[in-house]
Structure formats: C-alpha cells, structure tokens
C-alpha cells in the first residue's frame, strides 16, 4: 500500500492542494487542488483575471502562496525553490528578452544561467523554427517569433516540467498555429506541460487534461472529451432555411428551435438517433431540410454552462492577470 502511494506520487509533476492566494481583501486564488501527471499537457483554461497567472507563478516559485501546499516533482515550492528551478522551464506571460540581443545569443545567455553546456542551442532554435532568424535582434521580431523564442528559452535547461503562460495571446491566427505546431512537438517529447490559456480551441487541441478556473476557483477538471460529455451532452443542429411546415414538425416533436442572428434555426438534440427521427419527420411533412449542420458542443459551451458566462466576455473578476 505504502509502496503503491509512492509510485503514484512519483508520477506527479505537480501536486497542488488547497492553494489560496490573497492580496489584502482580494482573493485571487481560492482553495484550489489538482495534480499534473508527468508527460501530460495540462491546460488551465479561464478568462482574464481568473487567477491563472497567479497560480502559475506560485507553482514556478516566483510568488509565495498564502496557504495550501504546492509540490513540483515532489519538492515543496517554498522550501526547495533552489532544487526546483533547474528542473523547470518557464515562459512568463508576454515573454520578452533583451532588445538588442539576437535569438541565438538570448538562448545562449539563458543556457549559461543554467550552466547547461550539453544543450544543443541550434537544435532548440530549429525546434522552434527560428533558424533563419537566429541572428535577428529581439526588437526586430514579430509577436509570434518572440513567443517561439520564449518557448526555446523555456527548454534551455531540458526541463522536466514546462510552464507556458498564455503562449498565444495577442497573436494572429497564423502565428498561433505556428506556436501550436511547436507545442504539439513538445507533447511528443514526453514533457509535462502546464499551459494557461483563455482560448478553448488551444486547450481542446493540445491538452490531455483541462482545468477550468473561474474567479479563483476550479469549476471542472478532466479531459476535453470528458468535460464535454459531462457538461454538454447534446448535439447542436443548425438548419439554414426552413419553411413553416418544417418548423411546425420540429416543434411537434418537442424541440425548441430558435432563430439566430444569421437567419438560421438552431436547436439541441440528445444524440444522432434523434437527428435521424427529426429529418425523417421533416421530409415526411413534405419540407426540405437545407443547409443541415450537426455539431458537437465545444469547451466554450462547457464553460458557458458551468459559469453562466462566455469565455471572452467576462470582465476581470477577483484576482489580477499579472
């Protein structure tokens, strides 16, 4: 039994138990607990101001907790800071390096801080697709390139746990995809990755486990599929244009169609069987279901159903983003 528990905790990259952080009267993080397994990508999903950055900074030893215990690779973040630092890699929010220092020099500088002579600097630059920018100064890089450099630097000590705080915030869709490609590559290297984001797409694409944080508290944890299954177990049906006969049929079957802003009709069904029944009834009534679209709900809807708020339209609540 004892042995079993030990093996268990050895598989944990991060263990957070009852963590709280207060700034005066403000509760930024309120009694949260979770674990991150070695080798998994763990996404901390929540709107701005939910307490994501505060939590990351406590786990990566930059900030002290008000109460609760946080262990990284089995070590206490308050007491064993010096032992933790060499084994984690951090990309802080809005990562920046020295303006007039080039990509390669930046990576080299951080590798020297960690005293890792064995690190293949050019390999890291290649991994983050920065080879043709290796001699460009930081100030000349675009937002996406800066973030990629941040990822390269976060890996400069070959860390066992990597923290990425909002790695794609402020990037255009193309730059975001480029960062995602790199993160997918990381995932294949078997590193534990702790990712914070307010993009549900990002969490859904990259994460093995998602924890949804809202106003300093975790409201749900699980794999993206499991979260959707648990909290939004239905299908969304969309029809482009329907005549009244079809609409009547839908209502008669007990569904509640609503018209959306684009003139489409939208309603929820339980499963594929219901879609089948519904289409049969519409056709039987002599109407044509045109522009049919059946969608699985995503994390956005999970978030909405859990918090009653959209992921992007919340005003920063308790806590601060920095």
């Amino acid at each position: 039994m004892n042995k079993h528990t030990m093996t268990d905790s050895n598989d944990h990259a991060i263990e957070v138990e009852g963590l709280s952080k207060r700034y005066g009267d403000l509760v930024a993080v309120n009694n949260i607990s979770f674990t991150v397994q070695k080798g998994e990508v763990f996404a901390f999903l929540g709107p701005n101001g939910a307490g994501k950055t505060t939590t990351v900074e406590i786990i990566n030893t930059v900030r002290g907790p008000t109460s609760g215990s946080v262990r990284v690779l089995g070590m206490d973040v308050v007491k064993q800071r010096r032992d933790i630092i060499p084994r984690i890699g951090v990309m802080p929010q809005a990562f920046a390096s020295f303006d007039r220092i080039t990509v390669r020099e930046s990576v080299q500088y951080y590798s020297r801080l960690f005293g890792r002579k064995d690190i293949d600097i050019d390999g890291l630059i290649e991994l983050t697709n920065l080879t043709d920018k290796r001699d460009a100064q930081f100030r000349s890089l675009s937002g996406g390139l800066k973030q990629r450099l941040g990822i390269a630097i976060a890996m400069v000590n070959d860390p066992e746990v990597i923290f990425l705080d909002e790695p794609t915030t402020g990037l255009d869709p193309r730059a975001r995809r480029a960062v995602w490609d790199i993160l997918l590559g990381l995932k294949n290297r078997g590193k534990a990755v702790f990712l914070t984001t307010h993009y549900m797409e990002e969490a859904e694409l990259l994460a093995d486990t998602v924890a949804i944080i809202f106003r300093g508290a975790i409201v749900a944890t699980g794999s993206p599929d499991a979260l959707i299954e648990r909290n939004a177990n239905h299908l969304d049906v969309l029809l482009k244009s329907v005549d009244d006969r079809a609409l009547d049929t839908i209502r008669r079957l007990g569904f509640e169609p609503i018209h959306d802003a684009n003139g489409r009709v939208r309603f929820q069904v339980k499963d594929a069987g219901e879609v089948h029944t519904l289409l049969g009834a519409i056709i039987a009534a002599g109407a044509t279901p045109s522009g049919l679209d059946v969608r699985k709900p995503n994390l956005e809807e999970v978030f909405l159903s859990l918090t009653g708020e959209g992921l992007h339209d919340t005003t920063p609540a308790a806590g601060c983003a920095t």
Partner: peptide, 13 residues
C-alpha cells in the same frame, strides 16, 4: 517594465 525580470526570476540567477 519589459517583464525580463519575471523570466530571470525563474532561473538560477
């Protein structure tokens, strides 16, 4: 201001 200190705080310096 640039946040470089925040990064350096996570290194052995």
């Amino acid at each position: 201001q640039k946040g470089i200190l925040r990064k350096l705080a996570t290194t052995p310096i």
